[in-house]
Design a protein around this nucleic acid. Structure first.
Lengths: 155, 155
DNA sequence: GCAATATTGTTCCACTTGGAACGATATATG
DNA sequence: CATATATCGTTCCAAGTGGAACAATATTGC
């Protein structure tokens, strides 16, 4: 039987493939679990996540921050408004945009989602010692520092 | 202005977010360029990639190897057959499955795609020294070794 | 101050995706 | 040997996705 990880050693861009494999091992199951159990799509939790770290954002801000297109965020905003996880106020200085903020129930949901993803992260990265993990984080941080505005995390 | 990378420092699962950010910075633009310039979808190049490293595979093999569902691979097989990048022969010992192999034009296309992705990889990882990069690769390899059959690379 | 241009958020649409069910074939069980 | 179960590849369908065009509003340049 051929396993997916055998494939990694053969591929022409092995380093990217390794990064992708590890990322997927965390993100994909976590994302599936969140969608299945909480009914939240990716755009929706990116929206909640952005708003739980910044008190007020426009939809455009969230789009740029998350790397999702504006129409996806627009849909997410409507769904989250409908279930009361978001508040939207017109911006008094610019009638085009609206000021979005997260509600307490939205924040609670975000905490649930984040905790769930964190559990997957810990499990996948458990083969590394504390120090090894810190090394990886430092080196990846160095990489990110060179492209602060690149495509955004495919979280 | 808030940049996506600022977000990384705040998120609850920063390590996964870092991995995801770096992976996306390579994979997403590379994938977009391949689709735009060569008209090849992700399932299709995963198919070509698998077959350029294993002489004969069934669609099921490719599905397991790539982590893509069987119907996606099925579609990819038909498209690649239509343009002559693939050959399909009935398996004499099992009429359910077919033996897939890549043609010379398929192999050439694969080379183009792989080279293109490799260029993105080199550009994004260029902030690391040779040694640092080796360190990252070793540590990620250690992580992968613990879950050889996990979800497969989201390449 | 006014016309040209840019930006925000939305709707529309074409496309990709992956789960589920299906027919055909193979394997296991009694 | 017959029936139940599993597997392969396919088709169907519902859902998510993102580009493009759009109306409303803001900003810029003359």
């Amino acid at each position: 039987m051929i396993s997916p990880s055998d494939f990694l050693e053969k591929v022409e861009f092995r380093d990217a493939a390794l990064l992708s494999f590890v990322t997927s091992a965390i993100i994909v199951p976590a994302y599936d679990a969140v969608k299945r159990d909480l009914g939240i799509t990716r755009s929706e939790y990116l929206l909640l996540m952005a708003l739980s770290h910044y008190p007020v954002l426009t939809a455009q801000d969230v789009s740029r921050l998350s790397g999702r297109p504006r129409n996806s965020i627009s849909r997410a905003v409507h769904r989250m408004l409908a279930v009361g996880h978001l508040a939207r106020d017109p911006d008094p200085t610019d009638a085009r945009q609206a000021r979005l903020s997260i509600t307490e129930t939205g924040r609670a949901l975000h905490r649930q989602i984040a905790e769930r993803i964190r559990v997957y992260q810990e499990e996948v990265l458990s083969p590394l010692t504390e120090q090894e993990r810190e090394t990886v984080v430092n080196l990846l941080t160095k990489v990110v520092a060179q492209r602060p505005s690149a495509g955004a995390a495919e979280l």
